[in-house]
Design a protein around this nucleic acid. Structure first.
Length: 457
DNA sequence: TCTGGGGTCCTAGGACCC
DNA sequence: TCTGGGGTCCTAGGACCC
């Protein structure tokens, strides 16, 4: 029988912090985003206090202090390392592990035994991971990934499941569907949930009982797949998530933002270099490069300004220098010509808030004489292909084999001595676009100086 | 004053081709 | 005056995920 398990780490970032602060188990904990901007992870106790995902820190600060909530800045080095430990353990329980995100992975458990065996197997995975890493996880097992995700939510909610909920029979499936709000189904977001509610569909069972033709008519194929999966037909295939098709490095700047071209240039150079490094780590080249920078989306009192430009190189590259140069050139070009930017042309960018076009006006170098305060900038690389097969350009002037040797040497030095030990001059020597992280925990698992020392008396 | 940082897929419509 | 039919590719935007 085809069976999938999903292993989901409970409140992952909070759990990571608790591993090294065991006194916080059972207490409310939150983790903040970059720049200590908003709440991005909450322990169960913190959720009960009414804290929401994405709450701006400054708005909930008083509540956090009053309720004595433990607050941490995000420590991605620590979380990445802890994730590696969890994934490594999970891989021992399945022939194929699909790592879906930093805190979540799918295991193929097809044809591994009968119901009671599988249930115990899942419980064992959960307890082993918790014991070995300190991270509590919830396991859901079912004939489809969507149902498995549903199972993991039950396993997380009810202690009686001992960390694992198995949904293998039709009876169990319908029972679970009845109890499950449709908006919590994997693949049903806010928009679709709202439309479903209009038709009186509120539980996963309501949705699963609809006719396929109705679902197909009202929504797109993605939603039809979700419907099928709820009805026990497995049809969601995860392709190789390790090979990214686009890579983005972006940051918000702390405080008011940045108006100085020199500092902005350093920031963009660093983002581009980071993209290039991620690109090489997955043995790829890119041809498309996009640079963007924009002012605060929240401030009404200053004129907004959006800079964006893309370029397509003639030869795919993975060279830091080349990508940095392209990004910085685009920044200069846009920064100086920003005043000519037509007001209606807000570019499509991966930001999350709807932008009011009417507010977009001339920015840098405009008649007001003030350079805009850029609050966020970033670099995206796309058109990504394997580094093994690169289409050459007849008129290429670069010695690609020399370049490759240089990059390998640089990567090796940086791997041994820490990233950016060797870097492009434009990246600067000290980071002038500093980030806020007032509540940062230590690099307990990746920095020898931060390793906790146990004394035996 | 202070509001994250990544990704994916699907679709409609326009450009362009014969 | 009358203004085809069929196809592909690209892109922006919308939806979703963690």
């Amino acid at each position: 029988m085809q069976l999938f398990a999903v292993a989901d780490c409970n409140n992952f970032y909070c759990s990571c912090e608790r591993v090294f602060h065991p006194e916080l188990v059972g207490k409310p904990v939150v983790v903040l985003s970059n720049n200590d901007g908003c709440v991005i992870a909450r322990s169960e106790e913190a959720k009960k206090l009414g804290l929401k995902m994405g709450d701006p820190f400054f708005q909930v600060r008083e509540l956090l202090e009053r309720e004595r909530v433990a607050v941490f800045s995000s420590n991605y080095t620590l979380y990445g390392s802890m994730s590696g430990r969890v994934m490594s353990l999970l891989s021992q329980y399945t022939p194929t592990l699909d790592v879906y995100s930093i805190d979540e992975a799918f295991l193929d458990l097809s044809d591994m035994g009968d119901s009671s065996y599988i249930k115990r197997y899942g419980e064992q995975i959960a307890s082993r991971v918790h014991k070995a890493t300190g991270i509590p996880i919830s396991v859901g097992i079912a004939p489809t990934k969507t149902l498995a995700k549903m199972g993991s939510k039950f396993a997380k909610k009810y202690k009686g499941y001992r960390g694992c909920c198995l949904i293998d029979t039709d009876e169990r499936r319908w029972k679970a569907l009845e109890l499950f709000p449709v908006e919590d189904v994997w693949g049903i977001g806010r928009r679709i949930a709202k439309q479903l509610a209009y038709y009186g569909i509120t539980t996963a069972a309501d949705f699963a009982r609809q006719k396929e033709s109705w679902v197909r008519g009202k929504f797109n194929v993605t939603t039809v797949r979700t419907w099928k999966e709820l009805n026990g037909e497995s049809c969601i295939v995860l392709d190789d998530m390790s090979q990214k098709k686009s890579i983005c490095t972006s940051r918000s700047f702390s405080g008011q933002g940045i108006s100085d071209l020199g500092i902005l240039e350093e920031a963009v150079a660093n983002f581009a270099a980071r993209c290039a490094s991620k690109l090489r780590r997955q043995h790829s080249c890119c041809q498309g490069i996009t640079m963007f920078a924009y002012t605060s989306l929240f401030r009404e009192d200053v004129p907004p300004c959006f800079l964006q430009q893309s370029v397509q190189l003639s030869v795919p590259t993975q060279d830091t220098a080349e990508i940095v140069r392209a990004a910085v050139e685009m920044l200069h070009e846009r920064f100086s010509s920003a005043s000519q930017m037509p007001s209606a042309s807000v570019p499509h960018l991966p930001w999350r808030k709807k932008v009011d076009n009417s507010r977009v006006e001339a920015g840098a170098g405009s008649t007001t004489g003030y350079a805009p305060l850029f609050k966020k900038a970033g670099v995206i690389i796309w058109n990504i292909t394997s580094a093994r097969v690169v289409q050459q350009d007849l008129f290429d002037t670069v010695d690609r084999s020399k370049q490759k040797a240089l990059l390998e040497a640089v990567d090796e030095i940086n791997r041994r001595n820490g990233h950016d030990t060797v870097r492009i001059a434009t990246q600067g020597t000290d980071v002038r676009f500093g980030l806020q992280h007032e509540y940062l925990s230590h690099q307990y698992t990746t920095n020898i100086d931060d390793v906790i020392v146990a004394k035996i008396k």
